[in-house]
Simulated assay, not measured.
Amino acid sequence: MKKSVLLLALAGLSLSALAAELRVMTHSSFSLPKDRIAEFEKQNGVKLSIVKGGDAGEMLNKLILTRANPIADVVYGIDNTLIAKASAAGILAPTSSKLGRTEKDAQLPGAVAVDYGYVTLNYDKTWFAKAELPLPATLDDLAKPAYKDLLVVQNPATSSTGLAFLLATIADRGEDGAFKWWEKVRDNGLKVSKGWSEAYYTDFSRNGGSRPIVVSYATSPAAEVFYSKEKISESPTANLLLKGGVFLQVEGVALLTGGKEPQAAQAFVDFLRSEGVQTGLQTKMWMYPAVAGTAIDPVFAHAQKPAKFSNPSLAAMNSKTAAWVSRWNRLVVKQAN
């Protein structure tokens, strides 16, 4: 036994008590198997301090407001809707991965891709069956009287999910065409929630709310099967993969400028790309693994993978997202109040 370790033992202290603290900022949906976390801490001699900053948009705003005195060393959950804002704010330090690049890294300049998924509309099967209402076949149907007061979305100013859905409508219809549609659904009883959790767990009829259509993820039906208290073979929810209503979201990890533990932070980047994490995140965060060749969990058979999606170019998102969000809030939130 090394002398330093012996002295610690004699003093009644553990090595973990003196381990460096690696501060990790994440969005509220971050979750990994506990054994993986423990393994990382042991291998790298650090103690993870995971701070959940709310929805990804809210999380990013907190990092920007505290950039003069960073509250974290590394951030997970920056996605392709927010990467430009994060880079422009100067909060990201150069980040790479020893495991090489993946196809999805191109969507996150300045960060390393960890996972990806598809933002789309989910619906409550039971509600529609009881109402004997046909499913909407297009986004335009959602502006018709038959679908009044049925849709809940997240505010794109505070939610990456809401922002992704807004961007999908713009990519499909063009800016003016998209905002004409938003005006129509606003007048048809659209509800706006702060973030995904509020929309899905409070407003969605599947969870006791009044709205049977919610902006969520193509993997959400699989999660419903996985977490069901009773063993079920079919999800109670399903996707509405409507043209102009599907967005490819890529989430990543990056070191933060001014972080106190850059070496441990870089190790955390590689940890998130490791096989165990890429496998484990699927039924924890309900995203697809960014590393090609990773085995996909069987429950994802309930997660209908879209054949098409609508994303603006990275250049357009970089230069126009702030203006689009501002216009959306003027049109949808302020006009509705």
Rank of each mutant, 00 (worst) to 15 (best):
A265S: 10
E183H: 02
E21T: 12
V269W: 08
A223L: 13
F268M: 01
Y118K: 03
Q266C: 06
Q43H: 10
T95K: 05
L99T: 04
E175C: 02
S28H: 09
Y227P: 01
S28I: 05
D73F: 11
K184E: 11
L82H: 10
V185W: 04
A264Y: 13
K104I: 09
V250T: 14
L15S: 13
G174R: 04
E275D: 15
N318G: 15
L166N: 02
I83F: 07
T202A: 08
A218R: 03
S14P: 01
A267M: 10
E251V: 08
N61I: 01
S14G: 07
F300G: 12
F309G: 05
G244I: 06
I296M: 05
D176A: 14
T161C: 06
L135W: 06
K62A: 14
E175I: 11
L151D: 12
N80S: 00
D270C: 04
S16V: 10
V5L: 10
G280P: 06
V119F: 07
L63W: 10
P312C: 11
S210K: 15
N44F: 06
G57K: 05
V185G: 02
E261K: 01
K231C: 00
K104D: 13
I232Y: 02
E251S: 15
W127A: 14
I83S: 07
D35E: 14
Y76Q: 11
P236W: 00
A307G: 15
A267C: 03
L48I: 10
Q249H: 08
T138E: 14
D35T: 04
S193Q: 13
R211V: 04
P306R: 03
P134W: 01
S220R: 04
A178V: 00
K3R: 13
V250L: 11
F30D: 08
D124F: 09
W286C: 08
L82R: 10
S97T: 12
S205N: 09
L18K: 07
L314A: 14
A238H: 11
P156S: 05
S160F: 05
T257M: 11
A316T: 14
V114C: 12
W328A: 09
A11E: 13
G90P: 08
Y116V: 03
D55R: 01
S220L: 09
V153G: 00
V5M: 07
I78P: 03
G100T: 06
R330S: 14
L331S: 14
K3I: 15
D73T: 08
P70Q: 02
L281T: 02
E58T: 14
I37G: 06
L139N: 09
M59D: 07
D270A: 03
V74L: 04
H27T: 12
T158R: 12
V46P: 11
R206K: 12
V185I: 15
W127G: 04
T237D: 08
P236E: 08
I170E: 12
P262M: 07
V269M: 13
L32P: 04
